[in-house]
Design a protein around this nucleic acid. Structure first.
Lengths: 117, 117
DNA sequence: TGCTATACTAACCTTTTTGTGTGTATGGAT
DNA sequence: ATCCATACACACAAAAAGGTTAGTATAGCA
């Protein structure tokens, strides 16, 4: 086995993704936006336990990374919609894998509980 | 669109996975162990900037979730090896997707830089 | 005049995560 | 006797993440 090859250095793709998507909320927001563009208030309804500050903060971070697009309609009272960009949409397979993993994990838990371990 | 269906609640698979694998180090450790079982000291070499405490702490957390198996050879000085369990191995597709996403993202960055935007 | 709705800011605080530095046990080699 | 190697544990400190509360702006409506 080539142990040099697996050395984890500063610019490794896992870290890149962690920086872009890490934290408690970003993936949940992206998952929402995968369904449709949403206004801030709608996102808050769909992610009940996020605070307004976090939502705005994370949306801004996602904009800055180019994963989310902010569309301001310039109305009063304000109307702003958030939607995924092309790269933003590419987070879906990742989210799908997270889902798949969670299901497999819970299935495994059930198996172990059933067999009395 | 069925807005009820996409409401993110406390027991959602994304959150489950985030709880199991979130944080700065767990996925890097799992990625290492995907190659082969490793001793603590070897893991430290492959993940140069992790502290010993973090490594031990995260390995313990991964054991407790059933993703990693600890094998103590009972020698002196201590010899302990860590390896993936069956469910632990199921994190690979996820890691692969993270890698794929990071590459796509960087590709996109390059495209935007090249076109002067 | 005063209230509503909406997206957002800023100040401040708490909690969680991560890091540092030191100590422990022990068989074997020097 | 002394020191080494290895996998920890423990106390503490620093930094990052997350949360709460109180504003701001303004068109339209009662």
């Amino acid at each position: 086995m080539d142990k040099e090859a697996i050395l984890i250095t500063a610019r490794c793709p896992i870290r890149t993704t962690l920086e872009l998507l890490g934290g408690k909320w970003k993936l949940l927001i992206l998952f929402q936006l995968h369904h449709a563009p949403f206004r801030l208030s709608a996102l808050r309804k769909n992610i009940p336990d996020i605070s307004e500050k976090m939502l705005i903060q994370e949306l801004k971070s996602l904009q800055e990374s180019g994963l989310v697009l902010r569309q301001n309609f310039g109305e009063v009272p304000p109307r702003v919609e958030y939607q995924l960009t092309a790269i933003g949409r590419q987070t879906m397979p990742l989210i799908e894998q997270m889902r798949a993993f969670a299901l497999a994990y819970e299935e495994e838990l059930r198996r172990n509980t059933a067999s009395g371990q």
